[in-house]
Design a protein around this nucleic acid. Sequence first.
DNA 1: CTTGAAACAAAAGAGAA
DNA 2: TTCTCTTTTGTTTCAAG
Lengths: 159, 159
Amino acid sequence: MEQTRLDDRDIAILATLSREGRISKTELAARVNLSPTPCWERMKRLEQAGLIRGYRAELDLDGIGAHVQVFVTVELDSHRAENFQLFERTVAPLDAVTGCWAIGGGYDYLMQVVIQDVAAFQELMDNLLESRAGVRRYYSYIVTKPIKSVPPALGLLNG
Amino acid sequence: MEQTRLDDRDIAILATLSREGRISKTELAARVNLSPTPCWERMKRLEQAGLIRGYRAELDLDGIGAHVQVFVTVELDSHRAENFQLFERTVAPLDAVTGCWAIGGGYDYLMQVVIQDVAAFQELMDNLLESRAGVRRYYSYIVTKPIKSVPPALGLLNG
DNA sequence: CTTGAAACAAAAGAGAA
DNA sequence: TTCTCTTTTGTTTCAAG
């Protein structure tokens, strides 16, 4: 299930698609100096290998509707495998939770929440505490200003 | 520069594109119960209004190359406007910094870093301290396991 | 990897509800 | 206006070399 080695052209295709996800295959081929067919075959291979998880429009939430964005660090009651699983299974289906990561360094999880307003956020967290998902305590950090959000630079990775 | 009111179809278009960014316009039109032309016009309008910032392929970094992902909370020396600007201008061009948010709640910024390995991360942070960008201290949280990452649910927003 | 052809989608216009 | 329908142009996909 691991990767068949990626060459520079594969990396170029991935890098291009991560910035211009709706580029036409003809144009993509031109960008990576390939004719359309082999480029299309590579793209299909990358998708089927699961290296491309999907394509997403990136939206300007500020223009679309009122909302707050909050990061939350979470500490669990107990550190047994079943507690982690319980928390993860509780949190994963919540629509307002747009990101969640298990982290090292003093907390157990970092969550990213995008939701209507602060009241709705408080209700979400109250429900999470009451749900017995094993949350000992949490700290909230409201986003006051988004500074940057970009796809990872593939050039920095050990290709 | 603000939005011309979005109706349910606009929201449906945005929601669909945020999950299937490479869907064909014909298929998109079918999904939102519209014929291709008006759907195409709406989509163009949404893009030109800046509500769609761009399209991105979401990549499986684990399959592509070795890397670490780190969240970093940052506290600045001083809270004058020029200090914030200096920090933001220093951090914004760094390729390894894939996300940065100004936050309330005890720290000034949260940064998301995706980089080759822990050594490269340390070097990045050392450089940031030496650069006199006004960082008083920072805390690092290495991601040990990504749990969830999805686009925001538009249904939860005050459309 | 290239060519080339058939199937399909995108873009733009003319006009009806 | 806002949608439907039609046409032209360009893209996607695949077979064959």
